[in-house]
């Protein structure tokens, strides 16, 4: 690895000042499971300052309140999410993704904030967070702002973050009664691989009718894809497999995948249909149990 300097600020302000001063040559370090691989891989040779986010209190926050929802600091590793019983109980759709990123060792370090800021089309947590109406809380030199997760990634490895800005936390609204969510991905083995395709969904039921739904896909577009029309098509429909098939067909139509070593366009579109359908059926089951 080329020479880098390391700083360990203890406040958001210190960190954003460093980011503003150094611009493209500085990067935040969360779990490092993407950053250190990239720094070593020679694709980030312009980066020479690593700003550790893990000593900043706001980035370590995990606050759940049934009225206010969940605030998840950007540096909270996956295992702290699924080992938190209140969070695991309230957001099973988030646990689906926190427990499938890498294996146990990776989950000891990797964060959902890092997954989002890394902005890979295959980032497994991103569709799951979109389905849950997650919001990214950003701090920067000119103050704070919030961006819905579906608007955060702008191109592969590109985000809405401007010079000096960093992700502080993710916020999720409280789960409403009779709601359920699910993230599913397809990989050729049981664990430890990059999604060929993934689907994150959520539903809210009202006496067997779908009140609202959200559908989002991984690995089938330059960014994680929010398929608004697939969720909207379900509004007012009975919570049956027949209805679900309409939405999963729309998800397949919305997917704009490429052919690469992991799969062809045809194959990935087919996976979008299957994964969206299965994820919606599980989300409906979860909503009935909730």
């Amino acid at each position: 690895m080329h020479w880098i300097d390391y700083v360990n600020p203890h406040s958001v302000r210190e960190a954003t000042e460093l980011l503003a001063e150094h611009g493209e040559s500085a990067r935040i370090l969360a779990g490092g499971t993407d950053l250190l691989v990239l720094l070593r891989g020679g694709t980030m040779d312009n980066v020479n300052l690593v700003v550790d986010g893990k000593s900043i209190p706001e980035l370590n926050e995990v606050t759940y309140d049934p009225q206010a929802g969940l605030t998840l600091g950007a540096a909270v590793p996956c295992y702290k999410i699924y080992n938190n019983q209140a969070v695991a109980h309230a957001y099973p759709g988030l646990i689906d993704t926190a427990s499938l990123i890498g294996g146990t060792q990776i989950q000891g370090r990797a964060t959902l904030g890092g997954n989002l800021c890394n902005a890979a089309p295959s980032g497994d947590s991103i569709p799951a967070m979109i389905a849950l109406s997650g919001v990214a809380n950003i701090a920067g030199p000119s103050g704070n702002r919030s961006v819905p997760v579906e608007d955060f990634c702008t191109a592969p490895r590109q985000t809405v973050l401007k010079r000096g800005e960093m992700l502080v936390s993710l916020h999720f609204p409280p789960p409403v009664p009779n709601s359920g969510a699910r993230y599913l991905r397809f990989i050729p083995r049981n664990e430890m691989d990059i999604a060929v395709a993934g689907a994150g969904v959520s539903v809210v039921l009202d006496n067997g009718t779908i009140k609202s739904a959200r559908v989002s896909l991984a690995s089938v577009a330059p960014t994680p894809l929010f398929v608004k029309e697939a969720g909207e098509a379900l509004v007012g429909m009975p919570a049956t497999e027949e209805s679900v098939r309409i939405a999963s067909g729309l998800a397949r139509d919305a997917a704009r995948p490429i052919t690469d070593m992991r799969g062809t366009i045809e194959y990935r579109k087919h996976l979008c249909e299957v994964l969206t359908r299965r994820a919606l059926l599980t989300a409906i089951e979860r909503a009935k149990e909730a």
């Binding site: 390391y6 360990n8 370090l29 779990g31 490092g32 499971t33 250190l36 691989v37 690593v50 550790d52 893990k54 590793p77 295992y79 146990t104 060792q105 990776i106 000891g108 370090r109």
Partner: peptide, 19 residues
């Protein structure tokens, strides 16, 4: 390379020594 770091297993090839 697995080690236990503050109670959790991690891969130290993806940890900076300064951390």
């Amino acid at each position: 390379c697995t080690i236990i770091l503050d109670g959790r297993i991690v891969t130290p090839c993806l940890v900076l020594a300064v951390e």
